[in-house]
């Protein structure tokens, strides 16, 4: 196990380096630059800015310089605003992560319950209703969902203010973030639960007189979890790092919008920092997922 984890960690580092390299060269290859604007700045200003941020050097040299700084823990400043990137990530990630954790928890718990219910009551009305709703939610893009929530709860019902300075109401964004993964988990759970319930060992357990709940949760659900876990690991990673759409609609200063604005602004340091950050979270999530597999199903060998 330890040997396996060490191996995986080394691989993860390699993955992150490769990702950083691809991102760095790709973002430099696309047209546009961080100091472009409708009203062009003077040539002297452009030269000064390019020199300050090493943008006047060849791209491979820039990459080496960037990685050197990264190893020292320096993410640099945003080329757009001049703010320190570690400060930006330090203040926006906790916001996104808090929303993301709550949303993930809701998605997982509700998804498992709804999925199991649908599987157990197959072809009865609760199953039909759940299938209908999850299909609807899956088909609905997040910006439609978020706008609908805004319209309904802020505008029509007036339950939640659309803007209050200094505080964020987390209910609507959490709903908007959790619905789609919840629907997906429900469908996954239902499918794999149906599969698990039709297995021989369930029939054996029932024949032996094991109580119904124990059959469902201990024998059924536990074995149905593998595909769900496969999905949940990366899902948590992506939900933690925020969603541009949800953040912009509910006015939340999270990390999600930084990915997108970084690219639109060609804010190179911001693109690199957010990409590497997301990559690290992703590989960690994948590693944890694999370890959880082992805990859930001892038959799986981590080699």
């Amino acid at each position: 196990m330890t040997k396996y984890i060490v191996k995986r960690v080394l691989l993860a580092i390699l993955t992150v380096i490769v990702i950083s390299m691809i991102t760095f060269f790709a973002m430099n290859a696309i047209p546009g630059g961080p100091f472009n604007s409708e009203k062009a700045a003077s040539a002297a200003t452009m030269a000064e800015l390019n020199a300050r941020y090493n943008l006047d050097k060849p791209v491979p040299v820039q990459y080496v310089l960037y990685m050197k700084n990264l190893l020292r823990g320096e993410l640099g400043v945003s080329l757009k605003t001049g703010r320190s990137i570690s400060t930006i990530i330090g203040e926006s990630f906790p916001i996104s992560a808090k929303l993301g954790l709550i949303a993930s928890a809701i998605a997982i718990v509700a998804g498992l319950i709804l999925g199991s219910t649908a599987a157990l009551m197959r072809n009865q009305w609760p199953d039909r209703l759940i299938v209908f709703l999850t299909t609807l939610i899956t088909a609905m893009p997040s910006f439609v969902m978020a706008t609908l929530l805004l319209y309904l709860f802020c505008m029509k019902l007036n339950w939640v203010p659309a803007f209050t300075a200094g505080s964020n109401h987390i209910v609507l964004p959490v709903i908007a973030l959790s619905f789609s993964p919840m629907a997906y988990i429900t469908r996954l759970t239902k499918t794999s639960m149906l599969d698990a319930l039709s297995q021989d060992y369930i029939r054996t357990a029932r024949a032996k007189g094991v109580p119904q709940l124990k059959v469902i949760f201990l024998h059924g659900l536990r074995n149905a979890l593998i595909p769900v876990i496969t999905y949940v690991g990366p899902m948590i990673a992506s939900i933690l790092t925020g969603s541009m759409v949800v953040e912009s609609i509910f006015g939340i200063g999270g990390l999600g919008s930084k990915f997108v604005s970084g690219i639109t602004n060609r804010d190179y340091t911001m693109i690199m920092a957010t990409t590497i950050f997301l990559a690290v979270i992703m590989v960690v999530a994948n590693l944890l997922t694999d370890i959880v597999y082992k805990l859930v199903d001892p038959r799986i060998k981590l080699e």
Binding site: T147, M155, P161, A162, F163, T164, A165, S248, I249, G251
Partner: peptide, 21 residues
Amino acid sequence: LNIMLTSNDVTAYTAYQTGDL
């Protein structure tokens, strides 16, 4: 002065209509 910062003018318009702006 409270300043709302968002790239989404629909949200801002909603907040204006509900009297939050």
